[in-house]
Amino acid sequence: MSDLRELYQDIIMDHNKNPQNFHKLENATRVIDGKNPLCGDHYTIYLLIENDIIKDICFDGSGCAISKASGSVMTTILKGKSVKEAEELFNNFHDVVTGKINFDDAIIDLGKLGAFAGVAEFPSRVKCASLAWHAMHQGIKNENVEISTE
C-alpha cells in the first residue's frame, strides 16, 4: 500500500479528478493524437505555437489516472515555455520516469513533475506517464501526427 501511495501521490489524484486545460483548442497550430493500443489510453494534444513559444497547450481524451494527471501537469508546466525549454523538459522527464536518472539529478528543475518519479519503479506504468509527453514532443518537432507508445 505504501508503494501505491508513493505512486498515486495527491497531486496525481487531484489532476486525475480535475484535469487542467482538459479541452479542445480551436486555434491550435498543431494537433497530435497519442495512443497506447495495449491499454486503450488515447489523448489528443493541442498546441498553439507562435515564434517558437508555446502560447497555449490543451488536451482531451481518456486513460488511467497516471496518464491523465501526467497530461494535465504537463500542460500547466509548458504553457508559455519556448519549444527549446519544452524539449529539455521532455528529455529530463523521460529520463526520470524511465529510471535513467534520479529526480534529484535532473539538470533542470522539474518541480511538480517529481510526483511522477515513482513511476520508474513500475515498468508497466512508464508508458502511462509518458504518453502525453511523447505526443507533445512530436508536436513541437512536426506537424499534426499520430503517435503510439507501442
Binding site: M1, D3, L4, G63, I66, K68, S124, C128
Partner: peptide, 11 residues
C-alpha cells in the same frame, strides 16, 4: 480506470 484498478489489485 481499469489500468489503475488492476495495478492496485496486483499490489
Amino acid at each position: 480506470h481499469p489500468h489503475d484498478l488492476s495495478h492496485f489489485l496486483d499490489q
